[in-house]
Design a protein around this nucleic acid. Structure first.
Length: 595
RNA sequence: CGGGGCGUGGCUCAGUUUGGUCUAGAGCGCUUCCUUGGGGUGGAAGAGAUCGGUGGUUCGAAUCCACUCGCCCCGACCA
């Protein structure tokens, strides 16, 4: 491809609106342009990179036995109502009323759509297992798009869905998909981590995220020592200090009117104190499925106490009560408390999980279980007196910096890093098949819901993260040749010199005829401009054709990131480059690329 | 949605505090010519802006006021 015939508008100056590195570089290298907040046009070179990633993804999906389909982007809202997600996702979905007055959704994901397809087409366990995938644009009306292409309102996703008659089959495919994901990320050269994710209240039995660490990341992850396993802040457990609960002491609390102030921030501001001096009390239902809201019994509930500046980890409390779910305001009001003003004092019969940090405190403020009222002077010993016997002390909160964890190497600090989520694999089990009645007949002729898994990769985000990984403000450093937009960057330093032009043209033709993708900078501009643009675009193999070397009958080859200049006889350059390019496994072979 | 910031040729910005000398400037980019040709070469001549929009105040508005639209950042929210 001749530069002069291509659309590659590189920018010398840093665009004002772009703050994160990948965003700046994608803009500057002419890969993308912004249309509006969270929507981007891909210019030819940007598209090329997306397609290179898609190629690897397709190959690995196909290899893993998944079949490619293409589902519609426009969905009737009724399908989303079947699973309750019309309400759950709500305003996050791009939706519109069509001319017949029916609500439609621009797909933010496709579980409902694929499940609908499967329930129509699949009737027998003998048609299972089956894995389908697609690469398609998703739409999400994000509250705040950010970081360029990392969180946008429209993005390309590879989403796969698997269907099974039994858990063993689901597990097998899940592991197969996980392996395929590893191959994809390895071939693309990403320095990624697999993070155990919270399977959540959906009854899921497993979920893992593929992340890359980056300052542009939005999710905090915790690593237990260097090289240790990575988990989310919600799941990271800390080693407890084994603080002995104090003796029960007098309950000398004072009631404080706090009109209208119910959130931690509002109350701490009103009382001129710190959130860390407050106790946050969250009421949970032990088993949301079997709970009857009309007759709430104190023994069906429990309350979790964490410091005001901490977050309750639902993951950790679900280890005690797997069916736990946050109580509704009605239940809270009905059990002798007041929504927004819950506290541990005066909730007879309700079990209490106390995060250990509370015992370290002296006096706390907390809700009085009465509207517009809080309590002051709540001490750990008062809690012991009040809760006598119906409490448990432990680790019930999200991890925070400063937490430590015991490992085989002794106690280590938890390391906090931000990460970008590129992929997520999930055992959905019956979450969609049950409400949507996607059933098959088993061997005994009995109707059973299909077990499902789902597996997503954000393509655009993956490209941005790859650029984030090793690039500098000078230019993009592609993590692998598989992702670089071209194989070769041919730089002719002086198009005014007839020999340079002629030799460049000959070489360009030879390489293209060998099936290589070559960007030939044939612009009539100075060498400095070309070198700077080459650094910006970052195509790893560069050939420099200039008058000096040419006089000696040579050209220069640089391979980045090693980038030692190698002088090669003009006649030998094409052969050398072809050898270089085929030294790697060509895309499509069974070989995994090594970085 | 709350908080903060911004909006002036294609890009980066100056000018706004204190209205008039701004029917608006600079650098980069763009067009033409010469020059140069290994890290954004030097020079000459040009094109290009209803100062985000609407309304108001005023003899006079890029500048003051109101409303509005858009963009960025932080937060809240959320798979």
């Amino acid at each position: 491809m001749k530069f002069t015939e291509y659309l590659l508008p590189t920018l010398k100056e840093i665009p004002q609106d772009a703050e994160c590195l990948s965003h700046r570089l994608m803009l500057r290298s002419g890969m993308i342009r912004k249309l509006a907040s969270g929507t981007y046009s891909y210019l030819p070179m940007g598209l090329k990179v997306l397609q290179k990633v898609e190629l690897v993804v397709r190959e690995e999906m196909n290899r893993a036995g998944a079949l490619e389909v293409l589902l519609p982007a426009i969905h009737p809202a009724d399908l989303w109502r079947e699973t309750g997600r019309w309400d759950i996702l709500g305003a996050d979905m791009v939706h519109f009323k069509d001319r017949h007055g029916r609500w439609n959704v621009l797909g933010p994901t496709h579980e409902e759509i694929i499940t609908d397809l499967i329930r129509r087409e699949i009737n027998s366990y003998r048609q299972l297992p089956l894995t389908l995938y697609q690469i398609q644009t998703k739409f999400r009306d994000e509250m705040r798009p950010r970081s360029g292409v990392i969180r946008s309102r429209e993005f390309i996703m590879k989403d796969a869905y698997s269907f099974h008659a039994d858990a063993e089959s689901l597990n097998r495919t899940y592991e197969g998909m996980k392996a395929a994901y590893c191959r994809i990320f390895e071939r693309l050269g990403l320095d990624y981590s697999i993070v155990e994710a919270d399977p959540g209240a959906m009854g899921g039995s497993g979920s893992q995220e593929f992340v890359v660490f980056s300052p542009a990341g939005e999710d905090w992850m915790v690593q237990c020592g260097s090289g240790g396993p990575v988990v989310s802040v919600e799941m990271a457990s800390r080693s407890l200090k084994n603080i002995q609960p104090p003796e029960a002491g007098p309950v000398q609390v004072k009631r404080i009117p706090t009109p209208g102030a119910s959130s931690i921030e509002a109350v701490s501001a009103f009382l001129k104190t710190e959130p860390s001096r407050m106790i946050k009390a969250i009421v949970y239902v032990k088993d949301a499925v079997r709970f009857s809201e009309s007759k709430p019994n104190p023994s069906d509930l429990f309350v979790v106490l964490v410091r005001g500046d901490h977050e309750v980890s639902e993951y950790k409390i679900r280890r005690l009560y797997p069916g736990a779910a946050m109580a509704t305001p009605e239940v809270i009001d009905g059990c002798g408390s007041a929504f927004g003003f819950t506290g541990p004092i005066g909730l007879p019969g309700i079990e209490c999980l106390i995060d250990e940090d509370i015992l370290e405190g002296n006096e706390f403020y907390t809700g009085a279980n009465e509207r517009d009222t809080h309590l002051g002077g709540v001490t750990p010993s008062a809690l012991m007196a009040e809760l006598a016997g119906r409490h448990k002390v432990g680790d019930y909160r999200h991890a925070v910096p400063g937490d430590r964890m015991r490992t085989s190497d002794g106690e280590v600090d938890l390391e906090f890093r931000t990460a970008i989520e590129l992929g997520h694999i999930f055992k959905l089990n019956l979450r969609y098949s049950e409400p949507m009645k996607a059933h098959v007949l088993d061997e005994s002729g009995k109707e059973r819901p299909i077990l499902m898994g789902c597996y997503g990769i954000g393509i655009n985000r993956l490209v941005a993260s790859a650029i984030e990984q090793a690039s500098t403000d000078k230019g993009i450093v592609w993590p692998s040749r598989a992702m670089a937009p071209f194989d070769i960057h041919l730089v002719s330093t002086s198009m005014a010199q007839e020999d340079v032009r002629a030799e460049s043209e000959r070489l360009h033709k030879a390489l293209v005829n060998h099936g290589l993708e070559v960007l030939w900078d044939d612009r009539d501009v100075t060498a400095g401009i070309k070198f700077n643009d080459a650094d910006l675009i970052g195509i790893p193999i560069r050939i420099i054709v200039g008058p000096k070397a040419l006089k000696a009958g040579e050209m220069e080859i640089k391979v980045y990131p090693e980038a030692e200049v190698k002088r090669v006889r003009v006649e030998a350059v094409a052969g050398e480059i072809i050898r270089l390019c085929s030294a790697e496994a060509p895309i499509g072979s069974a070989e995994t690329k090594t970085r």
